[in-house]
Design a protein around this nucleic acid. Structure first.
Length: 958
RNA sequence: GCUCGAGUGGUGGAAUUGGUAGACACGUUGGACUUAAAAUCCAAUGUCCAUUAGGACGUACGGGUUCAAGUCCCGUCUCGAGUACCA
């Protein structure tokens, strides 16, 4: 009987769906295990073979954990809000909800494109997902809770004393009792001190304005990254090398009133938490860099002839006596005020010139040193000497205070600046030559020429400097973080609407019982003519506070302006939330998707806890993975979650690259040469579709001629009657014609082959090229496996109750041991090899024993579940193989009585010798030395030494 | 520039604690079966020298430690990823 994988796979996929085989229960005596994939954005292009790699790995692990007796939660869903659907909507006029649905469920869009649908593609691969828990972030039932979390963040502040987020009401009552002086909160820099009496005398609007400076999500005019091409603002992590991550469009700085998330409040806990989770060191390092913690001091320099002080942050307060000038960012607010009339022209010209340079130019051009003297002087806090104040664009407005105390002897940038403008470079290091470059080695620092710091090493000097600064009121120890608050508004349509309306310009939250606030219908998915976001086009987009519903804008008081809302109807927020909003908590929603109101009951939260294993790409290192951790910690603080970290262990799968096929065309002609002949001509490489090329890199000329018109009348120079193409490894992309569709692979070889081959390609975390040619190896293995169970007459199913032989048992148990170790270490590629070896050995042994064939199937089931189910069923089982227990390894079957010792001479293996394992060193030496081959290799030399490691090796030295 | 990771046959890769380098596959070559092809099966396959027996070399490069190094140490080169005036 032949291995009809298509029939078998369809049959078992249907069985799993019909029987709810992989439905996870929220109550179980078994230990829980939560395996999660980063959910996909359902794009119209569908999946290529690179996408399911991580899903296959997590599926193997999930299935393995089930066999090991765990209650496994393995859900899947869609991150279905986002830019591509909206861009497509702008182009085609289709509602993004429609195209998103087609992209997930399959169908034909109104452009006539046939879309396979993510769900259909995923189903073909045979994943053990519990689809009853599916989430879609664009589903109102889902984003209701995204909106709710937003309101919770709004109604919270961060108390540094308790080191957690608290309800805003505790802050309000503290203000009413004692003002804000003793409040130790994370808040905006510009809050002023007020007393309880002052607070109580403020109008409601004044109070609300102050509270916005404390809330964990807040409305503020901030300088944002505006991308004109996309018509929206972007978060820092959405910008790569000064251009937008999506599309590569230029980004400019612009002041706008936007919602922000006070993630900076969690900077320290986000760093500390990394020590408690099992993630790769590289991604932890990425997060640490992004958060950018630096410990140092704030120092104030009093300006001469001005009341203001310049505050600077420094990590080297120990070098304070080395300060010979200060530099402000050109955008610094004091620049205008302190510039002297003589310098005014030069300063203004400089500011003008730098503001014209884009972020990108500034980054590309680090070498050029530029700056201008303001004419102003500050006073050194200790020496009282005048310190000239310069401006320079090497100081960034966005980091620290936008000003630095320049210590040219200890900082290369300050050094270069001082050299260029002939500013003195006082040396504050003992025994260090600074005539060539600055000296920045903290460990080797001994301070000199620095009054009370003389002779001290780095650590002590820092401590003493801070102590003295505090004593004279000129500074204090401070830890600074690079992490900025995250802008949370997007001027887009296809995102979560904010549950916010405005009364007299002040934001008001819509209560949970009235959520979700659903996206309104609009005509066109573009900004309005006067520049408002797309939601500005909605006619029914106002909040009626009497009915708590969204109503027509016409119901806002017709007089408009300041007296809006006289009817209790107010305008709703026009921005939507960013792409990362929905993905910041989706792993929680999977824990229960059955409740009427969509809430996740506490029992489910407590039972599943955090994700035990998270698999996904490392490209989300500074976005999704940071925001999810932030929201988890926040929800933890507010008592909604018991866990403090969302993802306990994470594995980042490597990218699967395409192996492009290149045909070589002789330059200036329409003649193509086979790859072996290309060096005889001047040629250019033309990408051709990899799906037309066979395993030997040959292509049929007729196929190529029919592929694209340009080949129709082309000439071909063959070698040995064959036309061979070149190969190149590059990113899998339509552009290079190297995309391989998993559906095609499933049809031609089967899902089990696809699954095993993806695992066989190489280590999970490593980037590796896909080459369909190699798939026959894995496919042949599955065919061999099938024959192992069909050894009867006419290849009918055949399994016997005969006792297994010693060799059978040895093969089986060796396999159990290796496969179990491999899965635990996520070394899936080596376990596929192990199966092949086991298959080959058992075939050689002509094993038909049920006692071997049954456990073998269980081992293979996580990798090739369909064939395993089919054979398991044929063996007489009525339950799914996923209910079976994982076989137990027994050492006794592997115990050997002898070892094939390698015999080396001076470390080089020359021959092997089979010897009993219970031989002592002396016995081994005796046999080896007496062996004729030893004498042959030794010749007339006398061995100096014989190294014997029993059970391992013999090495004869001499 | 800095941080991290990686360099092993024609190709993907294996070697988990220093102990037989190249498992398992792909590809290639030869053979069996077949009218033929496909499928299947068998054998060979790191490089070089040699008719064989066998020998030499070999894990990016140069050193070192060790009886023994792909593995440990020092230096160099190349590639990839992240980050980039962070005070």
């Amino acid at each position: 009987m032949k291995y009809h994988f298509n029939e078998i796979e369809a049959k078992w996929q249907k069985y799993w769906a019909d029987n709810g085989t992989f439905h996870a229960s929220n109550t179980s005596d078994k230990p829980k295990y939560y395996v999660l994939d980063m959910f996909p954005y359902p794009s119209g292009a569908g999946l290529h073979v690179g996408h399911p790699l991580g899903y296959i790995a997590s599926d193997v692990y999930a299935r393995y954990k089930r066999l090991k007796g765990f209650n496994v939660l393995h859900p899947q869903g869609y991150d279905s809000f986002g830019l591509p659907a909206e861009q497509y909507a702008i182009q085609t006029g289709q509602h993004p909800a429609t195209t998103t649905k087609v992209n997930i469920e399959g169908g034909v869009d109104n452009q006539g494109n046939v879309i396979a649908g993510y769900r259909n593609q995923l189903d073909k691969i045979g994943f053990s997902f519990d689809w009853s828990r599916e989430v879609r972030t664009s589903d109102p039932a889902y984003y209701k809770w995204t909106q709710w979390i937003f309101t919770e963040l709004y109604n919270a502040w961060y108390n540094n004393d308790s080191n957690k987020a608290e309800g805003i009401d505790t802050l309000v009552s503290a203000f009413a009792k004692a003002g804000n002086e003793s409040i130790n909160a994370v808040c905006d820099d510009d809050v002023t001190i007020f007393t309880a009496d002052e607070w109580n005398a403020y109008t409601d609007k004044e109070q609300q304005t102050i509270l916005l400076k404390y809330r964990l999500t807040y409305l503020a005019e901030t300088e944002v990254n505006w991308c004109p091409a996309l018509g929206t603002v972007l978060a820092n992590d959405e910008i790569v090398n000064g251009v937008s991550e999506r599309g590569g469009h230029p980004v400019v700085r612009k002041k706008m009133t936007q919602w922000s998330m006070r993630i900076s409040a969690y900077a320290e806990r986000l760093i500390q938490g990394l020590d408690t989770i099992d993630w790769s060191e590289s991604i932890k390092e990425t997060q640490r860099n992004w958060i950018g913690k630096s410990v140092g001091a704030m120092v104030s320099f009093q300006l001469k002839d001005h009341a203001e002080k310049i505050d600077v942050f420094t990590t080297r307060p120990d070098t304070i006596f080395g300060v010979s000038f200060m530099t402000l960012a050109p955008e610094h607010e004091l620049v205008e005020k302190i510039t002297t009339p003589e310098q005014k022209e030069a300063v203004e010209a400089y500011i003008e010139a730098t503001s014209k340079r884009s972020e990108r130019e500034r980054m590309a051009d680090v070498k050029t040193i530029s700056g201008v003297f303001t004419g102003a002087y500050a006073e050194h806090p200790f020496t009282k000497e005048p310190v000239p104040v310069w401006i320079g664009d090497y100081v960034l407005a966005g980091y620290g205070t936008g000003a630095v105390m320049a210590v040219p002897c200890g900082d290369q940038r300050d050094y270069d600046f001082a050299k260029k403008f002939d500013i003195p470079i006082p040396n504050v290091f003992e025994g260090i030559d600074i005539s060539e470059e600055a000296f920045a080695d903290k460990a080797a620092t001994v301070i000199a020429n620095s009054d009370f710091l003389n002779g001290l090493k780095y650590k002590k000097a820092v401590k003493l400097a801070i102590y003295e600064l505090e004593k004279i009121g000129a500074g204090t120890g401070k830890t600074n973080y690079r992490l900025r608050d995250a802008v949370f508004s997007r001027q887009r349509y296809w995102g979560e609407p904010f549950p916010v309306y405005y009364v007299d310009g002040m934001p008001q939250m819509i209560a949970l019982e009235h959520l979700p606030v659903e996206l309104p219908a609009i005509e066109k998915y573009l900004p309005t003519e006067d520049g408002a976001p797309p939601l500005g086009r909605a006619d029914v987009w106002s909040w009626d506070t009497k009915t708590n519903t969204v109503v027509s804008n016409d119901l806002i008081s017709p007089s408009g302006g300041d007296v809006q809302g006289t009817e209790g109807v107010y305008p709703l927020e026009l921005n939507t939330m960013p792409g990362w909003a929905g993905s910041s908590w989706y792993f929680i929603k999977y824990m229960d998707n059955t409740t009427e109101d969509g809430s996740v009951p506490k029992e489910a939260l407590d039972y599943w806890g955090n994700v035990d294993l998270y698999i996904g790409g490392s490209e989300h290192g500074t976005g999704h993975l940071l925001y999810s951790r932030f929201w988890t910690k926040f929800l933890h603080d507010r008592g909604y979650l018991g866990i403090d970290e969302p993802f306990q262990k994470m594995i980042n799968q490597g990218m699967i690259l395409g192996t492009s096929a290149i045909a070589y065309r002789i330059s200036g002609t329409n003649t193509y040469v086979s790859a072996g002949l290309k060096n005889q001509h001047e040629t250019e490489g033309i990408h051709i579709d990899v799906n037309m090329v066979n395993a030997s890199d040959e292509i049929d000329i007729e196929t190529l001629k029919n592929w694209q018109p340009q080949f129709k009348n082309a000439e071909f120079i063959l070698e040995e009657d064959k036309f061979v193409v070149g190969r190149e490894v590059e990113k899998m992309s339509k552009r290079w014609y190297n995309v391989v569709n998993p559906d095609d692979i499933c049809n031609q070889y089967g899902a089990d082959t696809l699954r095993m081959y993806e695992m066989f390609l190489g280590p999970l975390e490593q980037a590796k090229p896909w080459n369909t040619a190699g798939i026959t190896g894995v496919h042949n293995f599955l065919k061999k496996l099938w024959r192992l169970y069909h050894s009867g007459a006419e290849e009918a199913f055949h399994a016997t109750d005969t006792a297994p032989t010693k060799d059978n048992l040895k093969t089986l148990h060796k396999t159990i041991k290796k496969v179990e170790e491999d899965i635990e270490n996520f070394s899936f590629n080596t376990s596929v090899s192990t199966f092949m070896i086991a298959g080959n050995e058992l075939a050689t042994q002509k094993c038909t024993s049920r006692a071997i064939l049954e456990p073998l199937l269980i081992l293979i089931a996580p990798y090739a579940p369909h064939i395993a189910e089919e054979l398991w069923n044929k063996l007489g089982h009525t339950e799914s193989i996923s209910e079976a227990p994982f076989p137990i390894f027994e050492e006794k079957h592997l115990v050997e009585s002898s070892k094939n010792y390698p015999i080396s001479f001076n470390g080089k293996m020359k021959f092997t010798l089979e010897l009993p394992l219970d031989y002592t060193k002396d016995q081994i030496e005796e046999v080896v030395m007496a062996h004729e081959k030893t004498k042959q290799y030794l010749g007339d030399r006398t061995p100096k030494k014989v190294i014997i490691v029993p059970g391992k090796i013999v090495n004869i030295v001499g």
